[in-house]
Design a protein around this nucleic acid. Structure first.
Lengths: 97, 97
DNA sequence: GACATATTTGCACAATTAAACAAATATGTG
DNA sequence: CACATATTTGTTTAATTGTGCAAATATGTC
């Protein structure tokens, strides 16, 4: 898996509307949230939200922690932000790609 | 089309490996390039490259100009970079989403 | 006009994907 | 143990998507 493939995976994960909505929802949360809470932001079945969150977790976009019967999700803020900024820099030509 | 939907479209367009390769290829180009030249970076048919470039153009990622029988592609560097940085800021919580 | 080159478009196909629903699993509570 | 809640997993379906190939279009050159 090359860095470029990994980046494509990250962007692809973010590039689906419901998943991006989940990310934005987590943006606004001061504290980590469980899946049922996040479920409300996109009008889809809980199982769908579960799968979307798994994709986000697999791509390192969110961090999951088990807490009782819940899963607590937290946005990997700096990590994701830095990857996006790196791409922005490469695209703008600030840094060689 | 909400801003969030537009952003999802942008990320989706960037999140396909061959399209991201085209973008990186354009990153390295000091001058705009035609499709045949760009075609070489991903090992796909010319028609496929044509379609990918159209998607990138529709999303405002690249700018196209007709020049004779060629189409000259140029990366919308600052525009795309700024959108990515805005998302990065929102994710990091620097700016309210 | 004949021909070469660049690009797009129509079509078919295989693979992926998002979604819903039901059933299964896991965990907490009475 | 019985039951409620949270989440995941299996299955199916419909839609989208990436690809290749052939044909069409557009433009330049002889």
């Amino acid at each position: 898996m090359t860095p470029q493939q990994e980046l494509a995976g990250l962007l692809k994960a973010l590039g689906e509307y419901n998943r991006l909505s989940l990310v934005y929802q987590l943006c606004d949360c001061k504290s980590p949230q469980n899946a049922m809470c996040l479920c409300e932001c996109c009008s889809v079945d809980a199982s769908v939200t579960s799968r979307h969150l798994k994709i986000l977790a697999d791509e390192g976009i969110v961090h999951v922690e088990k807490k009782g019967r819940e899963r607590i999700y937290e946005l990997n803020r700096t990590e994701v932000a830095n990857k996006l900024r790196k791409l922005a820099d490469e695209i703008e030509g600030v840094v060689p790609a």
